[in-house]
Amino acid sequence: MKHLPKHLQPRWRYLAVELEGWPDASFGRGTFQRDLWFAAQNLVGDTGSAEVDLSVLRFAFEDGAGHAIVRARRGETDRARAVLACLDAVDGDEVGVRVRGVSGTVRACEEKYIRSPPEPTDQRNVVFENAERRAVARDGRIDVRTDDAFVGATELDL
């Protein structure tokens, strides 16, 4: 279909989203998009979802860290923020989500808010609470593998 004249085209805002998870978290763009839509539907319903009109434009997530650029209708960025804040897990993996900023273009969003690429992780043995454990370290954050789960720590705890 012929595209709309400029004044009728929808206006968008682009949210730079920082993602964090445990080191064994692994999900792709499609799963993230699906769970984001579910989160929107659960929080603001079908009508709200249609109004906010979220879609994932850029996505990168590996070894428990990543980022995404999420598009929302202009004027709906607060609701988009709320939906993102309510995204507690993707594909069963717990995630920490934070909106770093909002821009009017994808490019501005990437240049201003996305630190790329994430720092590489480093596997090592650490002593945590008087026991030797395997751990995954990145940029001063250290996720220690305990018997049944991870514990989030930093270099101060070792």
Binding site: D78, A85, V95
Partner: peptide, 18 residues
């Protein structure tokens, strides 16, 4: 209960508004 559960003040405000 973990760093992954933390949400930024502005994001909490947005949730509160809904």
């Amino acid at each position: 209960r973990s760093h992954l559960h933390l949400r930024a003040p502005r994001d909490l405000v947005a949730v509160g508004e809904t």
